[in-house]
């Protein structure tokens, strides 16, 4: 399964997806969100929706010096928190800014493609796509 942006033009910037993602931990706030909504240069121009594209050869994992980010079969990465030293190289390596940061833990938060956020997008901006290994999808 892969999280994808179906139609960013429908995004109203309510950030319900961001709060949902963080709420998976059971707590409120935004510390654990790994989805980002920001204006595309001012609200009137709409929003940029940032989700992890679960790359098949993930640059974030490639630069991790401690092996804390492990590429998954079919794309994306898994974080082994105990191995992470919080150097932030993964964050810099992701050119779409989809490696988010938990400031309290000083470690990255990585999308696990669970699709919880999709359930809290009232405007169908996001979708979870069934994705066979090696088959690319047309999500942004």
């Amino acid at each position: 399964m892969k999280l994808a942006v179906k139609d960013a033009m429908r995004c109203v910037g309510c950030q319900s997806c961001m709060f949902a993602c963080s709420r998976r931990s059971g707590n409120a706030g935004l510390s654990n969100t790994c989805i980002g909504i920001k204006s595309a240069g001012g609200i009137s121009r709409g929003y940029t929706v940032i989700v992890c594209r679960s790359c098949e050869n993930p640059p974030c994992a490639n630069v991790c010096p401690t092996g804390a980010l492990v590429p998954k079969e079919g794309g994306g990465v898994r974080l082994i928190s105990s191995k992470c030293i919080g150097c932030g190289l993964c964050k810099d390596a992701c050119i779409i800014d989809a490696v988010f940061w938990n400031e309290q833990d000083d470690k990255p938060v990585i999308c696990v493609q669970c699709g919880y956020c999709v359930e809290y997008c009232p405007y169908e901006v996001l979708e979870l796509i069934k994705d066979k290994k090696g088959v690319s999808h047309d999500g942004e």
Partner: peptide, 25 residues
């Protein structure tokens, strides 16, 4: 900022959230 607001009763919190969210949408 993007801090966490710690909640003790996590199950009840998520249930209440869904109740309000569903009413809103």
């Amino acid at each position: 900022g993007k801090q966490m607001i710690e909640v003790t009763n996590k199950k009840a919190y998520r249930a209440m959230y869904d109740k309000i969210y569903n009413m809103a949408t």
